[in-house]
Design a protein around this nucleic acid. Structure first.
Length: 340
DNA sequence: ATTCCACCGGAATAGCGGGATA
DNA sequence: TATCCCGCTATTCCGGTGGAAT
């Protein structure tokens, strides 16, 4: 059933893009100066989740290195690398200069090393850059003439709101590429291409692809997730083709699976907070803290709990309504469409 | 209107952990 | 081994503010 499971993996970058030709050429143009040894202005990819921002950014940079192999591409996901130190570290890793870097390495040592790595241009793809907590690192990187950046985020306004002034002014210039949600037909085409590359021919019927595309509501990540989950199960049973009831199982699964995963990876204290909110529904901060306090031994401070809650809101696990006094928390239900 | 209170979130600080260095 | 260093998390301190109470 499954011929090549990498094709169904989250981070797979196809060798051909099905739609998004316009976005690819905009982005290629933006980094074109690098081919002739110049420097590219920053480039931006904006759009909701699952519309191919990351995929297209990586794809386009791969094509760029084909034109000029000396160029090195560094991919940094700012969910994980949200401090200056970690971003610089990831960049150094990408150019093989991260040997014996450790926590006690001097503050500017990392930056110095990156500055010294100027024998060839570096393109840094900073994914989910709105998760970056220390945006000054963008200023650092901008100062290096041999480093060009591609910033990937959901919305421009929210991204710039997080920047400090220096960064904001430096990044005003640059190419913006915006991505819209996929239509059903486009999703079907994307899925069909994955099926062609990764599964046995005829493993999935056309109307099944259409059902997946419908359920995914414009989100290619969800669509491919459904396909992956259904195909994996079919393969486990030794089936040659996808059955409809397998698909019925996979569709609700793909959405909740992601949430379930983040929930499980939540540290104990945050998990307790989540559970309390889930049990009580709409919860006020006061009672929330009191319940948390008696449920856990060695409770954290109120302030720390507030930090946890903002973090969990960031992960879209929890939602706060109201400011200051009178605020309430509740868990975020798995909504059919994420419109961020 | 004024006061009071609960709660938010920024900034500075403390303490931990783990690799380096001598 | 003892000590230094530094990133990271949690804590302390506090100014600000929306809503309830007076």
């Amino acid at each position: 059933m499954i011929v090549d499971e990498r094709v169904l993996a989250e981070e797979f970058v196809p060798s051909e893009v099905v739609h998004r030709h316009e976005e690819v050429s905009l982005l290629s143009e933006a980094v074109e100066p690098l081919v002739s040894g110049g420097r590219a202005d920053p480039a931006f990819c904006f759009g909701p989740t699952g519309v191919g921002k990351t995929c297209i950014a990586r794809y386009t940079m791969e094509r760029l290195t084909e034109k000029r192999p000396a160029i090195r591409v560094a991919y940094v996901n700012c969910w994980q690398a949200y401090t200056r130190f970690r971003v610089l570290h990831r960049l150094l890793e990408a150019v093989d200069r991260a040997y014996d870097v450790h926590r006690s390495t001097a503050k500017d040592e990392l930056f110095g090393r990156l500055r010294a790595a100027d024998d060839a241009p570096i393109v840094a793809i900073l994914d989910e850059v709105d998760q970056l907590e220390e945006s000054e690192v963008l200023y650092d990187v901008h100062r290096l003439p041999h480093v060009s950046v591609v910033l990937v985020a959901n919305r421009e306004e929210e991204l710039f709101a997080r920047f400090d002034d220096r960064v904001r002014s430096r990044f005003r210039a640059g190419t913006r590429v915006t991505f819209d949600r996929y239509g059903v037909d486009e999703l079907v085409a994307i899925l069909a291409e994955r099926v062609r590359q990764g599964l046995q021919p005829d493993a999935v019927a056309d109307d099944q692809l259409r059902r997946i595309a419908d359920a995914a509501a414009g989100d290619a990540r969800v669509a491919i997730g459904i396909l992956r989950s259904a195909a994996t199960r079919a393969a486990a049973r030794g089936d040659e083709r996808l059955t409809d009831d397998l698909l019925d199982d996979a569709i609700p699964d793909a959405r909740s699976a992601i949430r379930q995963k983040t929930l499980e990876s939540l540290p104990a204290h945050q998990r307790t907070l989540y559970d309390v909110i889930a049990e009580r529904g709409e919860t006020e901060p006061g009672e929330l803290y009191e319940t948390y306090e008696e449920r856990v031994d060695d409770p954290k401070t109120r302030r720390t709990v507030r930090n946890y809650l903002t973090k969990m809101a960031h992960y879209d696990l929890v939602e706060a309504t109201g400011e200051k006094r009178g605020r309430t928390y509740r868990t975020v239900e798995a909504r059919p469409t994420e419109s961020n």
